[in-house]
Design a protein around this nucleic acid. Structure first.
Lengths: 205, 205
DNA sequence: CAGATACCGAACGCTGCGTTCGATAGAATG
DNA sequence: CATTCTATCGAACGCAGCGTTCGGTATCTG
């Protein structure tokens, strides 16, 4: 790809992220993006048909890497023998925070439907083969969408806290809050679990 | 209030509901509402400052009645001695289905942020004093927003099924899926509960 | 009937969108 | 270096939707 193309593309992405961080997505105009990116109007449209298309492509790039190595330990990157759901979610959260924290958290927190839709689709595919046993007593697709939306909500909440919580703690809270039965590991008598003090709400803003 | 005012106001509401049922909320224009309601442009703006304002006012009216009698039996309307959460949710779902099914379900299913925001606020206030015990181990506001978004999701799912499920069944599934510990009632050996067959996904469309 | 009030609807200015097109600058090739 | 291709620029255009204005008409109230 031409160097010029890469330059402008990057400039657009950068500007977009910056604007998303400070504005409601819906209120961002193409003129703003152009201005902020320092490019010409027709150039923008040479790359993206529309603001939503820009978001779509950005999602595609973001999400293409999101589940890479999700079955390895997020710290040591060793492949886990029997990866737990909580472990994989932790890895996923690490990835999100380290690479896409702002835009991802912000758009989920805003409830921006376009982005949320993409993200949920991705999560649904991930959760589907891993649904807990109790889904036999609840319609499978309902169960799935509850778990998915819960995870989105957790990330949105995390963003609201400016990522003050550690990924593994958040993953643990999520799993616990959704009433997920972790098999064996993380039982209440384990040090990693039962000793966590009751937490006082965690409100920041 | 002047009869003329009531007439136009009703016409607007009617048109709005009709349009919401058939279109993405965001794509509905004021011109469409006017056309569909059969009123003049300036008349619309004499009643509502904007399309979103219309939605807001509609929400306010809808929600002002939503929790009325929520602690009574939805069928007999007898006041319950010790209303269970599941029972109250059932009542709420009955109310939603019988009065606001289309618009409420549709907007939640679309993920329309404005409406969803209002609805979540309402639910948050309802759930807050009723959070389960495990919220001591999970930040209270996180727990609350998980339960709230889960309930929204359930209604959206319900809408997707065209309300094929009965309110009490949906309430039961929700409570169960969210891992809620119902105190005493509805234990697995009870006829009302343990005998429900595993359900096969419930997909309609 | 008289006065007030609500509705009508054409017209206006504004903002944002997506497109067009000739001119310029940068990259690639021989 | 000369040539050719391609990306960018930016002004201008037409379009759609918004919210407002205002003179005229219908409807309510007393």
């Amino acid at each position: 790809m031409d160097r010029r193309q890469r330059r402008t593309r990057q400039a657009i992405y950068r500007a977009f992220e910056e604007l998303v961080a400070d504005n409601h997505y819906a209120s961002i105009t193409v003129a703003q993006i152009i201005e902020c990116a320092g490019i010409g109007r027709s150039t923008f449209y040479a790359h993206f048909a529309t603001k939503d298309a820009l978001l779509d492509q950005m999602c595609a790039e973001m999400f293409s890497h999101v589940f890479e190595g999700v079955e390895t330990d997020p710290h040591t990157h060793e492949r886990l023998q029997e990866p737990t759901l909580e472990g994989m979610l932790t890895h996923l959260l690490c990835h999100l925070r380290d690479n896409h924290a702002g835009i991802c958290g912000k758009l989920l927190a805003e409830g921006e439907p376009h982005f949320t839709g993409h993200f949920c689709e991705l999560l649904a595919a991930f959760f589907d083969p891993r649904l807990p046993e109790r889904s036999n007593w609840v319609p499978r697709d309902l169960m799935r969408s509850l778990l998915v939306s819960g995870f989105c909500q957790s990330v949105a909440w995390w963003y609201g806290q400016r990522f003050a919580t550690s990924p593994d703690e958040l993953a643990h809270w999520y799993v616990r809050a959704m009433g997920w039965q972790t098999k064996g590991a993380r039982t209440p008598q384990g040090a990693a679990d039962g000793d966590r003090p009751p937490c006082g709400g965690g409100g920041l803003g």
